[in-house]
Amino acid sequence: MKVYHFLIALLFTFSVSAQDLNSFFTETNSFLNKHVSKGKVDYANIHKDQSEIDELLKIASGITVKVSDANNYKAFWINAYNISVIKGIIDNYPTKSPLDNAGFFDKTTYSLGGKTITLNDIEHKLLRGNFKDARFHFVLVCGALGCPPLISEAYMPNTLEAQLDKQTKVALNGSFLKVNTKKKKVEASEIMKWYKEDFTMDGITEIEFINKYRTEKIPENFKLTYFTYNWNLNKQ
Rank of each mutant, 00 (worst) to 15 (best):
N72R: 15
G88P: 08
I117V: 12
M156H: 11
I122E: 05
Y93M: 02
F25C: 05
Y155I: 01
K40W: 02
P98A: 12
G129C: 06
V85A: 05
N158A: 10
L57P: 06
N92Q: 00
L32F: 15
Y73F: 05
I117F: 06
P98D: 06
T28H: 03
I78F: 08
K38N: 10
I89V: 15
S37L: 09
Y81R: 14
I53D: 08
I78S: 07
I59F: 10
S152E: 15
P148Q: 12
E161Q: 14
Y155T: 07
D69S: 14
K40H: 11
A154M: 09
N92I: 00
C142D: 14
P94Q: 09
C142V: 10
F76L: 06
E55F: 09
H35Y: 02
K34I: 08
K132L: 07
L140C: 11
D42P: 04
A144E: 04
T95P: 05
T64N: 14
I83W: 09
K58G: 03
I151F: 09
K166H: 10
L32A: 09
F138H: 14
E55T: 08
N45V: 00
S97Y: 05
K166Y: 05
Q167P: 04
F131V: 15
E153K: 15
K132Y: 06
M156T: 13
I151M: 14
K107R: 01
C142Y: 14
